[in-house]
Structure formats: structure tokens, C-alpha cells
Design a protein around this nucleic acid. Structure first.
Length: 593
RNA sequence: GCCCCGGUAGCUCAGCUGGAUAGAGCAACGGACUUCUAAUCCGUAGGUCACAGGUUCGAAUCCUGUCCGGGGCGCCA
């Protein structure tokens, strides 16, 4: 857990710290209801949630407290009576307009428009838009993307990359010192086959054109040959041993594979706006593996079984974990343990987050358990996501039905370009292309980020490239409209200073926007806490929907002086939130669409 | 056999740390561009939340079982 768990009488998160300047209403109101409930009903710590939560239906108010129903048993009173007593005795905080009791005993709170307006104004001066810097002074390592060397990235890699990057951005925004590490698959038995294959059938021209694709072709050819030709297999094994023993020629070739691969990965990462602090492949930890085995043996954790070295995890309800193969080679778990040790030593992280697909759940459970037994001190978190499927079948290299990531991005940009050309035919072509890039890539990312990561996902071109409705372009469009109207305001009313006109909230849509804006910190916190960027995506889509309705139904520039300025300020606050939120998802916000 | 995940509108998905009338997008139907960008907005229609029990004042949400789908389970990573 990142934040202290919620649920007890006083949310530890709200803590004993003095209330911060831009604290959201939910936080302020919860502290107030908890304290008030405790004093009115003379409650000890009971484990009952006394705080408030947002209402699901705005006709009920802005926040609701459900404690009366739960307190009924403890206090031996009817819930409605409890609610009534609370309402009668409580002195409302100044930001609450009124409270109502409804249904079985819900206590509903209505925020005052003046307080809302003031809050939104105060956010104009807060670069973090009300979000607390919860990660100050803490480091976190995020291990994501991690493709294999010599294999092109396909659509199966996009989730780890895009979700991992969003988590990365979220944690940075919360003030954590984030170390984004791309743990490349750069070591393993496949390199023997790569070596012999490369020397026999690498095509120099193809290699120059599309290096990684050619390396993959070589690998597949070599793999197929090894199945029919035992001597080929032996040769590959011999080359692998030579590589592992540090043979100069093989090392050089291996390094070349890695360099070519990283170069190509980087072009994809650049297109996706993804940056890593480190590219430490598995090979980086090679030298530490024997020591790790010794430690495991020394602690009595690793024992021999059928020639291999295993850690028995039966008492933890898990199958055994092989840490050294019978041929002396090391396994994934061993590398991962050494990696944790190294990261702790170097970065002292508060936690290490791994973003991979669901198939690795057992592996992570096992090695987390072993790490704990070894006394490694870091919170290890496995963030897993559902595997991507094609409508027809699961895709695999062997089936030949993989869709390359580069091709997906190309297609997205091409489709976006068509739309840009038809809607902005007068725009210079290079600008059209630049815009199409931002929109196309945004659409791809948003598709992944707007879904619950753990859901099964079926890849369809239609969904991946969706540009209407709940999609990145919808959000970008909303942003661009604000930008445009904001610029027009500046041009038409160049002499006015917006600070001279306070934000006022009269219209229902103004109120809905203000409420939504005030909940940005909650969305950020929930997204980070649960490692689920889709919570933020949902929030932003809601916000954009309310804004679009506002835009379409309420005049800004033609409104009377005062109302006009107030609305422009609301627009700009919305823009700031959309821009920040989309940036945290790694989605760009062009000023014009 | 054991373990993990999913099953919500015709389709694709939110909602799942229990709350009031289950939401979006697409598709369908009907409206709104001489107005701040129609990639938009407004409206209509569409649901046994897989099924059966249980816990609870209250269950799509928690528990148990069943069915269907996906994944994992000693020398791959």
C-alpha cells in the first residue's frame, strides 16, 4: 500500500498534520464529520467509517456520510434519529451550505457556491492543483516495458509501456523520486541460437533497413533448424557457453544485438513520449548471481532437487521455485532477487513496482516471498495487466499473427492525419502531420489507459484507433476549444485583468465543473494508490464531458461583463486540469485541433 | 487436479475498499452548425449486472458453490 489504509475511525491519511492550503473538500469535510461525530456521540474508535464520500447522484448533494446506519447498532438508536441528532447538534463548517437527511439515514452535504468558487480560484496559484506532495523524500523504482532484445515490439508490449509510464508520471507528480528502469531481456539461452543463426543467414541489407526484424527472422530460422538438426543445436549451445564465459567475439556480437535493439526500441519510445532513467538488462546482474545462490544456500532456503537448486515454498502455499538449473544456469527468480538487492543498495527505494502481464503473477509472488525471507527491505509490488488478445485467437510469433507496435503507431497517425486534413485543410502540411502524431498516439495510449488494466482485452483496430466519444481526441478537442476561446477572450478584451473579476458560480454547469475540478486530487490519489491510470482517465473524460456541455450550452464571450470573466477563469482552470491530467497519462494537448 | 483473473445494454467497456434510480462510447432512432472549433451537444430506445445460495438495514460490489472463457503450476522469461 502506498497510503495508509482507509477505513478506521480517522483516516490516517488525513493525519494529524495541519490542514494544508489547498486541501480538497472531501478531506476537510471528512475530518470535520469524524471529529463532530466523535464528540456528539462520545465515540471511541469503532472502526466505523465516519468520513464522507462523494455522492453518486448530484441531486443528493455533493458529499454524503453513511455513518448513521452503521452506528445504529452501537448507539442502539434508529439511523434516522442518529442523523437527525447529528444535524441538530452540529455547527456546520463555513464551506457547507446545508445538510439534508434522506433515505434510511444518509447525511447529505451541499457545498456553498461561494466556497467552491473561492477554492477554484485558489487552485490558480497552486502548481499541483490541490494534489498533495505525498512522495516527498521517497524514491520508487518502476520496472516496466522490458522487451526482449532482438525481438520487435508488438502490440503485446504496449500495455506495460503505456501503463508503466503513466504510473511513472503519476508518482513523479506526487513528489516521489522515480527511477524508471527498463529491465531488458538481454540474457538467456536464445543467444546461442542467435549467434549461429546470425553468422549463417543474416542479410546485411535487411539488417541495415530493419535490424530487429532481421534479427528476429534469423532467430526463428535458427530455432526451426535446431529442431531438425541436432548438430546445429549443439553448436548453438557451444556458442552460448562461449558467450557466457566471456569470449570476445561472441560478446561483441551480443553487444551489437543489444545496441541495435535499443536503438529501435528508442524510436518507439520517442514516439510514445516514454523515457527511462536506466536500461539495465538482466545481464547487468550476472556477476551477482553466484553470490545470491550462496546467500540462499547459507540461509538454508535453497536445496538440491533432481540436480537443480530449488526453494521450497510449500509452507507459503506455492510450488517450488527453481533458482539454479541442473545444467548450472540461473533462473529468472535468481536474477530478480539480485536485481532487488542491487536496487535497494543503490536507491533505497520506498517501493519497487513491476509492470508486467498476468502470466507472471506466480513468479512474482514466489520471488517476493523469497525476498522477504531474505529480509530485503522494500515494498515489492507487482502491477499486472490482462493479456491482449486478438478477436480470432491469442497471437503469437509462431502463428505469425502479431501486429508490430510500429505498424500500429503508423496506422494511428495515418488515420488521424486523414481527420486533420478534412477538418483543417488550410493548415500547413508539417503542422497537420505534427497534430496527427499527437492525436494518433494519444488515441492509442488512451485506449489502454482508459480500461481497467486487469480486464481481459481484445485488440481491435476499431477500438485502438477510436477517435470519437470516449477517446483521447475527445479530450484533446475539449482542451483545444478552451484554448481557442481563451485566446479569443484575450484578443477581444485585451485591457481587462481577470483578477479583478472573481469566479462566481450561478449556472448548474458552472457548479458541476467546479465540483469536478475540486476532485482532481482524489482522482490522482486513487489512480496512484491502486496503480490504475484508468481512474484518472475516467475522471478526465467526465470533466471533459461536463465542459463540452458547458461550452455548447452556455455563452462565454457574449455573456455580460463579470459573468464572462468568471466563466473564462473556469475555462482556464479546466484547461489546466485537463492539461495536467492528460500529461500524467502521457497524452499531449495541442492548442489547436 | 490446484491457483489467479474475467463474465454488466446488440457490440466494446466503466462502476467492484457495500449505499439511494447500474453508467459511458459505438451501433439504432429524432433534433441542434449565418453564433466561443459539430472530432461536439440535446433527446429517445436499449439491462434476470453468468447462475444459485449466503452475510447485511442495504449486494453488480463481500463470502460459498456451479457453469462458461482466459492464464499459470521444477529446469522459458
Amino acid at each position: 500500500m502506498i497510503f495508509p489504509p482507509v477505513g478506521n475511525t480517522l483516516r490516517p491519511f488525513y493525519g494529524e498534520k495541519p490542514m494544508r492550503e489547498f486541501a480538497p473538500f472531501e478531506e476537510r469535510l471528512s475530518i470535520w464529520t469524524i471529529e463532530t461525530m466523535q464528540s456528539i456521540f462520545e465515540l471511541e474508535k469503532s472502526g466505523i467509517k465516519l468520513g464522507v464520500s462523494p455522492t453518486q447522484n448530484e441531486t443528493f448533494g455533493d458529499y454524503q456520510c453513511n455513518a448513521a446506519m452503521e452506528l445504529a447498532k452501537v448507539l442502539k438508536k434508529a439511523p434516522r434519529q442518529i442523523a437527525q441528532e447529528f444535524a441538530d447538534a452540529a455547527v456546520l463548517p463555513d464551506f457547507v451550505e446545508k445538510i439534508e437527511i434522506a433515505g434510511p439515514g444518509f447525511i447529505n452535504f451541499f457545498l456553498s457556491n461561494a466556497a467552491l468558487a473561492e477554492h477554484i480560484q485558489s487552485l490558480e496559484n497552486d502548481p499541483h492543483l490541490g494534489v498533495e506532495q505525498a512522495g516527498q523524500g521517497k524514491a520508487v523504482v518502476i520496472d516496466y516495458s522490458s522487451p526482449n532484445v532482438a525481438k520487435p515490439m508488438h502490440i503485446g508490449h504496449i500495455r506495460s509501456t503505456v501503463i508503466g509510464n503513466a504510473i511513472d508520471r503519476l508518482y513523479r507528480f506526487l513528489g516521489y523520486h522515480v527511477i524508471a528502469d527498463n529491465h531488458l531481456g538481454d540474457w538467456g539461452t536464445q543467444f546461442g541460437l542467435m549467434m549461429v543463426g546470425f553468422r549463417s543467414f543474416a542479410d546485411k541489407e535487411a539488417l541495415a533497413k530493419a535490424p530487429v526484424e532481421e534479427l528476429e527472422r534469423v532467430y526463428i530460422a535458427s530455432y526451426n533448424k535446431s529442431k531438425e538438426d541436432p548438430s546445429w543445436r549443439d553448436e548453438a549451445k557451444a556458442e552460448l557457453v562461449k558467450l557466457q564465459q566471456g569470449d570476445g567475439e561472441n560478446r561483441a556480437l551480443w553487444k551489437q544485438f543489444i545496441e541495435l535493439s535499443i536503438q529501435e526500441f528508442d524510436t518507439i519510445y520517442n514516439r510514445l513520449g516514454v523515457k527511462f532513467d536506466l536500461y539495465r538488462g538482466e545481464s547487468f546482474y550476472n556477476d551477482q548471481l553466484p553470490k545470491m545462490i550462496k546467500t540462499l544456500e547459507g540461509r538454508g532456503l535453497a536445496v538440491e532437487s533432481d540436480g537443480a537448486l530449488i526453494v521450497d515454498l510449500e509452507e507459503d502455499g506455492m510450488p517450488v521455485c527453481i533458482v539454479r538449473k541442473s545444467d548450472g544456469g540461473y533462473n529468472y527468480a535468481t536474477t530478480d532477487l539480485a536485481t532487488v538487492e542491487s536496487r535497494i543498495e543503490e536507491f533505497s527505494p520506498d517501493r519497487i513496482i513491476y509492470v508486467t502481464d498476468e502470466r507472471q503473477q506466480l513468479h512474482f509472488k514466489q520471488f517476493f516471498t523469497i525476498a522477504k525471507k531474505l529480509g530485503m527491505e522494500a515494498n515489492l509490488v507487482h502491477v499486472w495487466f490482462g493479456l491482449m488478445r486478438l478477436p480470432e485467437a491469442t497471437f503469437s510469433t509462431r502463428e505469425g499473427n502479431v501486429i508490430k507496435l510500429a505498424a500500429l503507431l503508423d496506422e494511428a497517425e495515418a488515420r488521424a492525419l486523414e481527420m486533420v486534413k478534412s477538418s483543417s485543410p488550410d493548415m500547413p502540411e508539417d503542422q497537420q502531420k505534427e497534430l496527427a502524431r499527437a492525436i494518433g498516439i494519444g488515441a492509442i495510449k488512451y485506449t489502454d489507459l482508459s480500461q481497467n488494466p486487469q480486464s481481459l482485452v481484445t485488440f481491435t483496430w476499431e477500438k485502438a484507433l477510436n477517435m470519437e466519444g470516449n477517446s483521447a481526441p475527445y479530450l484533446q478537442y475539449a482542451y483545444a476549444r478552451i484554448s481557442s476561446v481563451s485566446d479569443k477572450y484575450s484578443a477581444q478584451f485585451s485591457g481587462t485583468d481577470l483578477d479583478d473579476y472573481p469566479i462566481t458560480i450561478e449556472h448548474e454547469l458552472e457548479r458541476r465543473i467546479a465540483i469536478k475540478l475540486s476532485r482532481f486530487p482524489a482522482a490522482i490519489r486513487a489512480a496512484a494508490e491502486n496503480y490504475r491510470p484508468n481512474i484518472l482517465a475516467d475522471y478526465l473524460y467526465d470533466l471533459a464531458q461536463i465542459y463540452s456541455s458547458f461550452y455548447q450550452n452556455v455563452p462565454f464571450l457574449k455573456a455580460d461583463e463579470g459573468i464572462r470573466e468568471s466563466r473564462i477563469r473556469l475555462c482556464r482552470a479546466t484547461a489546466a486540469t485537463l492539461r495536467q491530467g492528460l500529461d500524467l497519462l502521457g497524452i499531449e494537448t495541442p492548442e489547436r485541433i
